[in-house]
Amino acid sequence: MTAPLLALDDLVVSLRSNPALRAVDGIDVEVAPGEAVALVGESGCGKSVTAYSLLGLLAPGLAARGTVTLDGAAHDLADGDRLRPLRGRDVAMIFQDPLTALNPVMPVGRQLEDVLRVHTALHRRGRRSRVLELLERVGIPAPDRVAGSYPFELSGGMRQRVLIAMALSCRPKLLVADEPTTALDTTVQAQIMDLLRDLVHDEDMAMLFISHDLGLVAEFCERVYVMYAGRVVETGTVRRVLERPDHPYTRALVDCLATMGQGADRLATVPGSVPGTDAMPAGCRFAPRCPYAVDACRTTDPRLAPLPDGGQAACLRIGELPDARSGLTGQAEGTR
């Protein structure tokens, strides 16, 4: 891998009121220039918290620790305000719910202008025309009319396009997409993902794609980090991780997807639920839900270890597990 564009080093996010409770517990994430990397896991496993800490946008009750290196420059994550210069300029972020993510009482064009005002030297008229360019760039048919509209007057897909335009406005090197299509209809979802893929390619942006949808990940990303209960449990190329997952948690996720792909009438889920930060198991955090767990798993906390075929996984029983079923990526197409 070339020198990474983004390197997140030993990120810990804990409650201010009780630093022993950690939402994210020491993870490393790297993204190369132009690369699309996914962060996957069930809700509550720390994906979004990771993304927010990257820009110093954590809720007031949470504190981050660790460093982020962006384009060779290291920044301390502990002081969110120090990360402000990165926001929008180097790293742009789009969000899950495009309705609530836009100011309801401001025309969307003005909100775009606000971002341009901060990051560019453009004057009023220049900003206006740039707004229209950007809206056109994200496939909005009547940019001048949309620019004057309020969020509530636009459809969900249009709103997400506006947010994407906002993200593009300063030509960031990295786009963080926090479940950008979860709140959208399936057809709109596909359009937005296609748009994202084209933009990332054309603008030569890297993307950190946060999702629980392995189907989307399989299609759009090159590498993946699987998160569970605040830790990275497995990482590697999307191809390897999804075709031959090594960690039992990844296997469970992949199985869910496979079941759904085969037209199961019920939404398949991994049995059990993610432990809360105040009830972390002593050994492997997945052990209580793991079909392969042995006694050692309940006492020893496994660390990420290199796998023979590249990538890493955090499981004591790597190599002892039965072979994973394969062929997932073929089925994943069917879910979209």
């Binding site: 201010r16 939402a23 809700s43 809720a59 949470l62 809360g276 930060t277």
Partner: peptide, 13 residues
Amino acid sequence: MAGPETAGPGAAE
């Protein structure tokens, strides 16, 4: 149950 991620500003409650 809810991790800090799912809750809003009052996360710790």
